[in-house]
Write a protein that binds this DNA or RNA. Sequence first.
DNA 1: TTAGGGTTAG
Length: 398
Amino acid sequence: MLRMRPQPCVFEFNKLLTSIVKMKKLQLAVIRRGFAANKRVIDSLCKDRMVDDALQLLAKMIDKGIAPDIVTYSSVVQGLCNFGRWKEAKDLITEMVDHKISLDAIIFNILVDAFCKEGLVKEAEDVVEIMMQRNISPDVVTYTTLVDGYSLVGQIDKARKLLDSMPGKGLKPCIISYCSLINGYCKNGKVEEAWGLFLEVPRKGLHYNVVTYNTMLQGLFRAGRCAHGLKLFKDMQAQQLIPNLMTYNTLLNGLCMNKQITEAFSFLHIMEVQGVNPNIVTYGILIHGLCKDGKHEIARNLFNDLPSKGLQPDVQIYTTIIGSLCQEELVDEAKLLLLEMEKSGSSPNIITYEVIIKELLKRNKLSEAKTFLDEMSTRGLLLNSAEGININLGVVTR
DNA sequence: TTAGGGTTAG
């Protein structure tokens, strides 16, 4: 007897949609972390068109007579927001309202997060205002997202006030709320305030996690407080928290930026022993640190070793090495590497050229600088920042 | 105990 395949239900579509959007989010995170030169990721972003896949799936559901619910719509709205497709996200929300699906805190939070990530805190505040007008109470996630948004745009006092106001609204800030503000303080050069907040965590009955430690570690090293950072690294292990790749990269970068290269290499060894595999970011940190310390040859050797470790240099690493060659007045080699990077699939970006030109200007190599400046404009890389004007002026006037 | 939201690295 033939068994009829049951009609898929809304849950199954939602599951599929969620996985599509999650994959997209993962790729976005990779790109935001500066892997923009990874051609494979760019290609998959452009070619796979997963957001469009999600939209197609939504159309398919409707076609089959399965009514999308709030979860379906939320997933697609998030997918659209991830790519700044605001107009379509807005249209979808209108469609939801038309279909009498009542909006909830989660979908509003998706919008708040999307605006905050773009640094559009005013728009995020407007969303919260609309929520309240509709009698949907902003929750811990809403305010935590806003704290993160304020921190991102440097409105750190506003972030603090918001966190402090949460108990009065009947909401208990969670570890992520604290982590967002700690990060905000650190990124805005207020490491003392960050440390004070970090110490408040257990007093509030909350538990540290690896992310909280990673954030605080970065803040301490950025402020040049290496000894304190190293002590914190020990403390986290005493708390049974296992350092991950991000912890080690933060630690290595902190040490390199404070000219403790030997110490950084000893932690490279430790992480490997602990079974945490260094990635391209790890090597980028070490190569940059070596160059900054004037150890150009060692940096180049490490760079040349990358393929044997199964790692492909990305645009940032190429930029570092090209800059280092220019610093050593090996301009012809820098030009060769520029060609090589293109062959390998990484396109030089504005920063690559800025680094080269700045190095050449420092050494009064005007005609060389001019060649690179011309090459930049040939490639359609326009210098429109204040930095760009300075570079142009430097080339023209020196 | 079927599904959607917030934190960290060059």
